[in-house]
Design a protein around this nucleic acid. Structure first.
Length: 434
RNA sequence: GGGGAGAUACCAGAGCGGUCAAAUGGGACGGACUGUAAAUCCGUUGCUUCGGCUACGAAGGUUCGAAUCCUUCUCUCCCCA
């Protein structure tokens, strides 16, 4: 089986602005031919979120460059808790939750990488619990702990910060880097895996691995980290009003997912299109020129949102997202809903949070604040609803709600069934009266 | 073990007997402008049946009245040993 060796992995990351740090010798290793590398994913939740996409894209590039990617799901490391970037001790997950998370994460990774083609460089999934479950404590500290000094471990940023901070750090978390380091050692020894990649916050952990390989295995292994994605204004990437943007359609609907990317600022979009899509350099440069000429068309945002939504949610998910977007933000008037069948309406609003209320109650008339805060959970409290209405931030059926005392009744229903609520400009809700 | 300082809304941080649902800044949310952008400006930021109600680490107490004073407890930080 030949590998598609038409591109240089490191160069690829470099021009895309993804590369953060790379150990000397790594490029030479990769240029010699097919190499194996891995990235670890922590099963802290039962879905990956957009923050994980950088790592996923890194593995995709790695595979496209003809190398063999391993995705390690941390069944064992997940039980310990990575202190990197954490200011306080992490809560440990129970084994059942962990197992559930692992299964979910595995399924999602299969969307992105080629695991089954049978090619020499097809991806593989490994779970470090497999090699840790039979490894008892005494043997671990004898065989692994012996090779790394505490001085070395304490010098790591992730450890140093916690030692200086107020909360302290348990022995469990302190051991984390050694556990992760052993993963690398194990994969190096058993799967000929010579490169570990990860976010820039993982550098310390990765290097503990290469160190362990050097000392215990008298071998050589390499490290490469990618930029932590931040927004241009310095705030955290991957959160929206509601919280994390998940890859799981149950947690973040394809519509919401698409909207997240579509709402990217110009500045961020230009860097994200390089990181989160596979368009080549020429295509992206052309897009940027086009965008700068007519920024209001948001060419980049649209391409970005489409590409990622397609990859994550497939054609069907993308079409749904587009349909909803066009209806909600396009020029179509709200009356258009009246021309649709129930099934069509539900399809358009499938990604929009919806609530059901009793039609009988509505016929008697319901004050807006009750409608939005009590009968539905669009607002957390009536006071909140009142304020928002007074501030002019609420609309029903695309008409601003005048005062908090307004009363809505069955006559306001569209199709004798629906109310379309907007909180702010961008947040839509559907109320169904039954 | 001894001595000192502190705990206030999402965070930081003022207030030190009534005028405190609590200054100010940040964050968050909303409005205007625009392009579902950025920047800027403006507004909101405990709940309410709009009478009130619950809130300033916890529990008691003093007082007509407490975030503010007293007692005990819990926790945090600093200094000395």
């Amino acid at each position: 089986m030949k590998h598609i060796h038409n591109m240089n992995f490191v160069e690829e990351l470099r021009w895309r602005g993804m590369l953060h740090d790379i150990m000397p010798g790594t490029e030479e290793l990769l240029n010699k031919g097919m190499a194996s590398g891995y990235i670890g994913f922590d099963p802290t939740a039962d879905s990956l979120h957009v923050g994980h996409l950088t790592q996923i894209m890194t593995l995709i590039h790695f595979q496209r460059a003809g190398h063999k990617p391993f995705a390690l799901v941390g069944g064992a490391t997940g039980m310990v808790g990575d202190p990197s970037g954490k200011s306080a001790e992490r809560n440990l997950l129970t084994e059942e939750i962990l197992q559930h998370n692992l299964d979910s994460v595995k399924k999602q990774l299969e969307i992105f990488l080629d695991f089954k083609s049978g090619a020499e460089n097809s991806a593989e999934m490994v779970n470090n619990y497999d090699w840790f479950k039979g490894f008892d404590f005494l043997n671990f500290i004898r065989d692994v702990g012996k090779h790394i000094t505490v001085n070395y471990m304490m010098a790591k940023d992730s450890v140093k910060k916690r030692l200086e901070g107020e909360t302290g750090m348990s022995f469990t978390e302190f051991s984390y880097q050694l556990v992760q380091g052993y993963d690398f050692y194990y994969l190096w020894q058993n799967r000929n895996c010579t490169l570990q990649m990860g976010g820039s916050d993982q550098w310390g952990n990765i290097v503990t691995g290469t160190e362990l390989i050097r000392r215990k295995g008298r071998g050589e292994a390499f490290a490469l980290t990618t930029q932590l994605i931040k927004k241009a204004d310095g705030t955290k990437f991957g959160k929206s009003e509601g919280g994390n943007i998940w890859l799981d359609a149950e947690k973040t609907s394809p519509y919401q997912f698409y909207q997240f990317w579509l709402n990217t600022t110009d500045e961020d979009a230009k860097s994200y299109i390089k990181i989160f899509t596979l368009f080549d350099q020429e295509t992206i440069e052309a897009m940027i020129v086009e965008h700068d000429a007519a920024p209001h068309l948001r060419v980049i945002q649209k391409a970005l949102a489409k590409d990622i939504t397609l990859r994550v949610h497939g054609e069907a998910g993308f079409l749904k997202a587009i349909k909803s977007t066009e209806f909600l933000f396009g020029s179509t008037g709200i009356e258009f809903l009246g021309e649709l069948t129930d099934a069509e309406v539900l399809a358009i609003f499938s990604g929009v949070p919806n609530f059901t209320i009793s039609k009988a109650e509505l016929e008697a008339g319901i004050p807006v604040t009750d409608l939005l805060a009590t009968k539905t959970a669009i607002f957390p409290s009536k006071g909140e609803a009142k304020k928002m209405i007074a501030g002019g931030g609420t609309a029903i059926n695309k008409e601003k709600v005048g005062t908090p005392d307004d009363v809505y009744n069955a006559a306001n229903l569209i199709n004798n069934k629906y109310l379309v609520v907007q909180k702010g400009k961008r947040n839509y809700f559907l109320i169904i009266a039954e």
